[in-house]
Design a protein around this nucleic acid. Structure first.
Lengths: 341, 341
DNA sequence: TTGTATGCGTTATCAT
DNA sequence: ATGATAACGCATACAA
């Protein structure tokens, strides 16, 4: 069991002070090239690696970015996490990932921990149930850079990156209408969340603009999970009155509908058609291949990191950035022709 | 921009020493109940939360577990990560996730960083290309608890959790043979990795035991990704000589085969049949539903954490634990009947 | 160019 | 039961 090499060990060996060693290893201009090279060489030989905990405490900089997401084993967040990790790695930042599991209290604890760990910045996609924004105010007061991603709270003066939720839903609905559908339902998010409202409003306005009445029995608000989609659709089946097509607010919801439909021998897209937000790549191998309103995960992640790095680099600025990334309609086997014509 | 409350702030307010505050907040028996309650109350009111960086440095305990995986946007690892996060959360441990992207050098850097961050323990699933085990020896020497998971190096005296790779491959192959297949191929991992060898040997011995000769043109060793599966299958198609069924070493490989097959209008399972390691849940919605040798992700994650916690709690023990978790054959639409009968 | 003194916020040790 | 002092390993400001 060998101990870790410290600055002082190198200092003793070379008869330099700890400070000189510290500076040399960090390429501080104070130190001459010759001394620096010697010190680096010896440090390498001795297997030195800095104690990042001590460095954090002393420098008040952790080189850690906190990332809070509601779920991880979902394609959308998986992709985003992957990209953020890669960008972090390129910039010598560690990513501290926290998974809130769609629970507000857990999210709050995670944020508290990130503050206590003195991370340099935070990127968060809030849970579908987050209503209390006090913790976000605390973070702002502490001066910790904060960027909201995709799931944005109803707050002023924040940094955020999201997609064109309204337009995406509008376009998706309009597409269904153009195919010839009139009996269209929407499985959406809670209406006291921004994303839930934006997507519903896109749906609603597309219907209104086409002068098609909305049947409230076919509009359901709730969670974003597979389970939610499964239950919502199952209940709808039991009413005996199904729409001809559904606009689902997330890919997991659509998957839940697939599951429930398979169980009840309801054929997609013949008995009921569907399109959803989010592209999982694998969707083209589903039976039938699931069409979607694609959200560009890579761009979302990149923009978020870009904004965050800017905030970290220039801390005192009083500006707030709000990026909105366009969505794209991807048509596969569902929502490709009207099953009622 | 408000500053964080420190121990000394509470100390000043209550006319106690910093030490007393510190002890009280950690329920140290030195402090009387009355004092403790008072201090806790005031700390709460003042919004105190400990600086975990300082605590780590002082106590030489970080309450952080490092987790290194080759990929994240894959179902198998996604599930495992999720479970490990949940268990960590329950035990008041943070999980520091690192993604090696199947690159040995990146993996080494990540491990170095985890050491530098003074994590309390490490769980790792090594890359498909990891051949140099020096860094693992370093970790052992440092006395940092280390558990290998699923992807295990060829080393003695390590803690590990893996599945019955050999038996799983044997059973899967045997199943194909029982269906009536004779022309069976294997898309496997590199043969200088343990998991690659174990799965190939399972395949080989099943074939040998059934006295079916192996056609070496149908046995391909390489990476575990979708891309690998896609390329391997595409090349095989070009030889004009396909097997009747394939045992794929991973789910992504099988997915790659699906993609290549779709592109070339080759029908699964009629033209070629397939079964793979790993169950992605969504596999039953693929066309055709993909059968598999299921690896119980939750159990793997749980056992790994269990072993790690034991190592953290009892540091000095010189024993090594090696858990082997059974796999299970899940038959869906592929590998359900012989396409050559 | 190099070194000294001090501090980061907490915990451990040992007195009182 | 409570507190003074040192230590954790490093970085910053300032001195030489």
């Amino acid at each position: 069991m060998s101990k870790a090499v410290k600055l002082i060990d190198i200092a003793h060996k070379l008869n330099y002070s700890v400070v000189t060693i510290s500076k040399a290893l960090r390429d501080h201009p104070d130190i001459s090239n010759k001394t620096r090279d010697l010190i680096k060489k010896v440090a390498e030989e001795m297997g030195y690696s800095p104690n990042l905990v001590a460095r954090s405490l002393s420098s008040r900089k952790s080189n850690i970015i906190g990332l809070v997401v509601p779920k991880i084993a979902h394609h959308f967040f998986g992709q985003i996490i992957q990209t953020i990790y890669d960008i972090g790695f390129e910039h010598n930042y560690e990513i501290l990932l926290m998974v809130s599991q769609e629970e507000q209290e857990r999210e709050r604890k995670h944020l508290q921990t990130l503050l206590a760990m003195k991370v340099d910045g935070i990127i968060i996609s809030i849970t579908e149930k987050t209503r209390d924004y006090k913790i976000f105010e605390t973070i702002k007061e502490r001066g910790v850079p904060l960027v909201f991603m995709d799931r944005i709270p109803d707050m002023e003066r924040i940094n955020s990156v999201r997609v064109t939720d309204y337009e995406g839903a509008y376009n998706g609905t309009e597409h269904l209408i153009r195919l010839g559908y009139k009996n269209i339902g929407h499985f959406g998010g809670y209406q006291d969340t921004r994303i839930g409202r934006d997507r519903y409003n896109g749906f609603k306005n597309a219907m209104d603009d086409a002068k098609i009445p909305i049947n409230p029995n076919w509009v359901k608000f709730g969670g974003f999970s597979e389970d939610d989609g499964f239950k919502t659709f199952s209940k709808l089946v039991e009413t005996g009155n199904l729409p001809d097509a559904i606009l689902a607010a997330t890919y997991p919801i659509a998957l839940g509908v697939y599951m429930a439909a398979k169980e009840r021998k309801i054929k997609i897209p013949n008995d009921i058609d569907i399109i959803c937000f989010g592209d999982a790549n694998i969707q083209r191998f589903l039976e039938p291949a699931l069409s979607c309103i694609q959200q560009p995960t890579k761009i979302i992640a990149e923009k978020s990191m870009e904004i965050l790095f800017d905030l970290i680099t220039n801390p005192k600025q009083e500006k707030f950035t709000s990026e909105i990334v366009p969505t794209k309609l991807i048509i596969r086997e569902t929502a490709s022709k009207c099953n009622r014509l």
